[in-house]
């Protein structure tokens, strides 16, 4: 099981049109221990997806280091599974081939891939849909395939970029429950990006609340709540009140900032 560590991360974008530099992430350091479920919570544009992409290896920091399992991240790799906001499945491959795509890249034969995919297909409750093509799936089902694909690739580190944002409310609740159930059963380190306070509270073992741009970690909250989470309980709502207060404070700061610029 691997832990994730981010140290002194700074990200500066060059705005070519205005000829200015934009400080997107300002000196972020945090670490996620093995088997923790960290929710990165913040407003849009705060750099939470950028941080996730850095852990995935799709983006590099202007300065600072990212390491997973003690090894520095230099690029995307099969030691970290990512679930994207859109399912991004290969439309020409049936469900089972999509889930086992990483094994194809590893040079494994069709029989082995088929066998390896089955437990993950069952896990995300897509039994019977093995041979369906992505175009024949609903949004929620497609996202399940995306999750199964990441799980098969690597159980120990799963990165999720608002994977349920495009789903309807009911499907979203179902998927959240299932994700937690899978995580509880199989463990693994999860970093989950979201802008929904409720989602973070339902899913996370920790929540990192980020500030508006430039992104910093405002507060790292360890959630001491029993599972399954009860969104009507007093403790749940106490956390929620606290986080909402932080967010309100942040957006007030953002407005003040915008007024002075």
């Amino acid at each position: 099981m691997a832990s994730i560590e981010l140290k002194d991360i700074v990200k500066i974008y060059k705005d070519r049109k205005r000829g200015t530099e934009l400080l997107s992430i300002d000196n972020v350091s945090f670490s996620v221990d093995s088997n923790e479920f960290l929710c990165l919570l913040g407003p849009s544009g705060c750099g939470k997806s950028t941080l996730l992409n850095m852990i995935a290896g799709f983006e590099s920091a202007t300065s600072g280091t990212v390491s997973v399992g003690g090894k520095p991240v230099l690029g995307p790799g099969a030691d970290r599974g990512m679930v994207f906001q859109q399912a991004t499945l290969m439309p020409w491959l049936p469900v089972w081939e999509n889930i086992a795509f990483s094994l194809k890249l590893a040079g494994k034969g069709a029989e082995e891939r088929r066998a390896a995919a089955q437990p993950f297909i069952d896990m995300v409750k897509l039994t019977g849909f093995e041979n369906h093509y992505p175009a024949e799936l609903s949004g929620g089902m497609a996202q399940r395939v995306g999750i199964a694909r990441a799980l098969l690739l690597n159980f120990s580190v799963i990165l999720m970029d608002e994977p349920f944002a495009a789903l309807d409310a009911q499907t979203k609740l179902e998927m959240q429950e299932e994700l937690v159930a899978i995580w509880q059963r199989h463990q693994g380190t999860v970093v989950f990006v979201t802008h929904s306070v409720d989602e973070a509270l339902v899913l996370g073992s920790q929540i990192a609340v980020m500030t508006h741009r430039p992104g910093r970690i405002r507060e790292l909250i360890k959630l001491d709540l029993p599972r399954p989470r009860d969104s009507t309980s007093a403790e749940f709502n106490e956390y929620k009140r606290h986080i909402l207060a932080l967010i309100r404070e942040e957006s007030a700061l953002a407005r003040a900032d915008a007024a002075t610029v």
């Binding site: 099969a78 599974g81 994207f84 890249l105």
Partner: peptide, 14 residues
Amino acid sequence: DRNLIRAAAMMGGR
């Protein structure tokens, strides 16, 4: 779709 290429890179594709 660039995201498909990203997904393949994520899965260790050369």
